[in-house]
């Protein structure tokens, strides 16, 4: 398995698009938080809200890292390198698990780094402007939850990619899921008389993981994480099962 992990690590590191998406994923929250920290007239209030601002802006990062997770697999199909990969290691489940593991590990590390850098920059600026940044326990939990959410979305993209095996379609579904699909389901559930549909929507529910202040009726971070986690695992397992049987 060590050999496979190294191979997958080389693959991720040697494709330029991963760096481009990583830079965009990092630049978005960093630029926003730095601007907010510099331009907000109430530095003390901004310092208090910093953890929430960081986790909020990093939702875009989470989606982009999901795209990286998806492309990590689907680009193998679009360039047919999956045949080279499976010819070198015909035990497909081992290959796909190694790829998922490396993709998840890279996402967690990158997400944690981006979050740490973003938060640190915001904290330095706001502290210099007279604010006082000191995150509470729930805010720290939300920041940790965001990193986990990034990992889950990366695996979600990976699982979708395993099933769809097409880059544009996978990325479109990954983006449209939270933006469109869950909005439609939410509207349907609301029309059906469900007071708070959020616990029934995997992505919306999972956002609670990265929310510093949970409202009453919201699912807990753990429950929200488990809900999306089960769905992600279901996609990945289904994808591996399908790929074991399909022609490469």
């Amino acid at each position: 398995m060590t050999h496979l992990l190294r191979s997958e690590w080389i693959k991720i590191r040697t494709v330029r698009v991963n760096y481009v998406l990583g830079i965009i994923a990092a630049a978005f929250p960093i630029v926003i938080i730095v601007l907010v920290a510099l331009l907000n007239t109430d530095a003390d209030s901004a310092a208090h809200d910093l953890p929430g601002a960081v986790t909020g802006t990093m939702l875009v990062t989470a989606l982009l890292l999901g795209v990286v997770g998806a492309l990590n697999l689907t680009s193998e199909y679009s360039h047919n390198t999956i045949r080279t990969t499976f010819a070198a290691v015909p035990q497909r489940t081992r290959v796909l698990l190694a790829k998922a593991a490396v993709s998840l590990a890279v996402t967690l590390v990158v997400a944690a780094l981006i979050e740490a850098v973003t938060f640190a920059l915001g904290a330095v600026i706001l502290n210099a402007r007279g604010g006082s940044v000191s995150p509470t326990g729930t805010e720290k939990a939300a920041m940790l939850g965001l990193v986990v959410l990034c990992g889950m979305l990366s695996l979600l993209g990976y699982g979708l990619g395993l099933i769809i095996r097409n880059s544009p379609a996978t990325v479109a579904i990954l983006i449209l899921w939270p933006l469109l699909l869950e909005s439609i389901v939410r509207a349907v559930l609301t029309a059906a008389g469900v007071d708070n549909p959020t616990p029934w929507l995997p992505y919306q529910s999972a956002l609670q993981m990265a929310k510093p202040d949970l409202e009453s009726g919201d699912p807990s971070r753990v429950r929200a994480g488990l809900f999306l986690g089960v769905i992600v695992i279901a996609f990945v397992v289904t994808g591996i099962f399908i790929n074991e049987r399909r022609d490469a």
Partner: peptide, 16 residues
């Protein structure tokens, strides 16, 4: 993968 250089293409296969 057209974006990967020749050596890295071989490295990823070899490493596996």
């Amino acid at each position: 993968h057209p974006g990967r250089n020749g050596r890295n293409h071989l490295r990823m296969i070899a490493a596996s």
